[in-house]
């Protein structure tokens, strides 16, 4: 039996608490997880039970949402983040990381945060969740993977202007991204010999240099070097023809050169079910692929399916890791 999954509350003024309660209703009895946060922030009437230690969640989660209580400074008003609660949001993440690092939790799943609220309220110095987790874990480079049942994609560059992508793409960055992805597919996805497909940067993967030289000058040499080490890597492939069902069957993950090259196919395939997985941390971390949704918070209409998918993904990964 693997340990339960830790779910950090995220921004309490967003949809995090209500989708956590909704996810428990769907997953109770099948996937044990516990929620780290202030019980006052959960929707009224949520069947919850305060636990003292994560292990209790295995039993408790059959009948109530197990809550590892972390008192925040203030109640939450849906749609209006309170700077007073910023430190609580950060502490919930840190608590979850400590528990997963000690082995008391098998993985951490994080509900969405609101970066500006954390910066205003607690001088949060990180651009996002992922960077904070990397700092807590003491690693320098992590990789973002987005996964749904039909596809796994890894953007090599992420939140930068499109115009800056070519300069940001370096052989070292591409190499590290592939190595981290490859290792994670082996360790956390149970794939003994992962098959990777790498997209080109330019239309038709540059068509032999006719439309851009990054493939010839950087991508192909990197892939050749990694193949020489025995990796199963296809590419650079023309990005427009690598995502249909027949092509997807030939690889386990697609390495993409920029954000939308990865996000267009996965959102087009599965808008609601996409899960964000951080690779390269010493522990397993997943999160739903949406934000705090202040505009609908507190109205009981938020869709929990991405969070449910994220918890399920964390569970599958934890089992794969435990089986080794």
């Amino acid at each position: 039996m693997t340990a339960p999954i830790a779910l950090s509350c995220g921004e309490p003024a967003g949809i995090g608490p209500e989708i956590a309660a909704a996810a428990w209703r769907t997953l109770k009895g099948s996937l044990p997880f516990f929620w780290i946060g202030d019980p006052r922030h959960l929707p009224a009437g949520t069947p919850l039970q305060i636990i003292e230690a994560p292990a209790q969640a295995l039993d408790v989660s059959r009948t109530a949402l197990p809550v590892l209580a972390l008192p925040f400074a203030a109640p939450a008003t849906p749609g209006q983040p309170d700077p007073a609660n910023a430190q609580g949001v950060i502490d919930a993440i840190a608590r979850g990381v400590a528990l997963v690092q000690s082995g008391a939790a098998s993985a951490i799943c994080t509900a969405p945060i609101h970066k500006k609220a954390l910066k205003d309220g607690a001088d949060f110095a990180y651009p996002g969740h992922t960077e904070y987790l990397a700092a807590l874990a003491g690693v320098e480079r992590v990789v973002m993977m987005l996964a749904c049942d039909a596809l796994r994609v890894v953007p090599v560059t992420i939140h930068i202007p499109l115009a800056e992508v070519p300069q940001a793409l370096t052989a070292a960055l591409l190499t590290d991204t592939i190595l981290i992805t490859h290792a994670a597919l082996r360790r956390d996805f149970g794939l003994a010999a992962p098959r990777l497909a790498v997209a080109g940067l330019n239309p038709h993967a540059g068509e032999g240099g006719a439309m851009g030289h990054e493939e010839i000058e950087m991508i192909i040499p990197v892939l050749d070097a990694l193949r020489a080490e025995g990796m199963d890597i296809a590419g650079p492939m023309s990005a427009d023809t690598m995502f249909h069902a027949g092509a997807r069957a030939r690889y386990d993950a697609a390495i993409c050169m920029y954000h939308d090259q990865a996000l267009i196919p996965i959102k087009t395939l599965d808008f609601a079910g996409g899960v964000n997985v951080t690779l390269g941390l010493p522990f397993i971390r997943t999160s739903p692929d949406h934000g705090t949704a202040f505009d609908i918070a507190g109205r009981g209409i938020a869709d929990p399916s991405s969070l449910i998918a994220a918890l399920k993904m964390a569970d599958v990964m934890a089992r794969a890791r435990a089986a080794q």
Partner: peptide, 8 residues
């Protein structure tokens, strides 16, 4: 059909 670096 242009290089991505020229798009912007």
């Amino acid at each position: 059909h242009v290089a991505l670096r020229d798009v912007a």
